[in-house]
Amino acid sequence: MVTRGFVGRRQPPETGARLPPGQYLTDDFPILQIGPNPAVDLATWRFTLREGSRPIKTWSWAEFEALPRTTWTGDIHCVTKWSKFDTTWEGVSFDDLLADAGIAAPTNFLVAESYDDYSTNVPVADLVGGRALVATRYAGQPIHPDHGGPARLFVPHLYFWKSAKWVKGLRFTNVDTAGFWELRGYHMYGDPWREQRYIGD
């Protein structure tokens, strides 16, 4: 449906090709979250892998920082329509977490759980093979609390609400179990290139 009088601002082709449908490029780094930043103290910070309610492995901050590091540079896409190009993140890959825990993924799905009330679900297949980190550095610096530090899940090929801020653990589930936004109408998977913003997209 054409909107009378709307022309729009065209991106250069090289920019447009990197923007998923419905997205626009920003140089800012907008902040979106459900409430205030939670108080997270590195002295008591823990990261725990669980299967259901059973803990598999827990790391302290010092233990976590000693794990192998992976760096990723590329574009991120937020469901609120902004995309940001050429961002650099560093952290521990999901593969390296599993290796340090000495396990293979026990189920095909998990829920990332955060120090605030937030949670989000991601299929294990989208985390393995170097596709995801638990990130602790952005642009070479510790991640600012506004952007989810000290540690956030980082799954850049999905909309950024899947990259849970202030993450405290990953809980393997037998079935794909909706998280905070997925219970409120957001898409269970969230592929920006298929514009899966909301249920039914």
């Binding site: 800012d28 780094f29 907008p30 902040i31 979106l32 979250q33 409430g35 205030p36 939670p38 506004d146």
Partner: peptide, 29 residues
């Protein structure tokens, strides 16, 4: 704005309001 919401959150929590009561929406950077 992020600046306003961050300042307001901090002041309201400092006044003794529980963080879990606070819901936020932010725009811009």
């Amino acid at each position: 704005s992020n600046r306003f919401v961050a300042a307001a959150s901090d002041l309201i929590m400092a006044a003794g309001v529980a963080p879990g009561l606070i819901r936020t929406e932010r725009f811009g950077a």
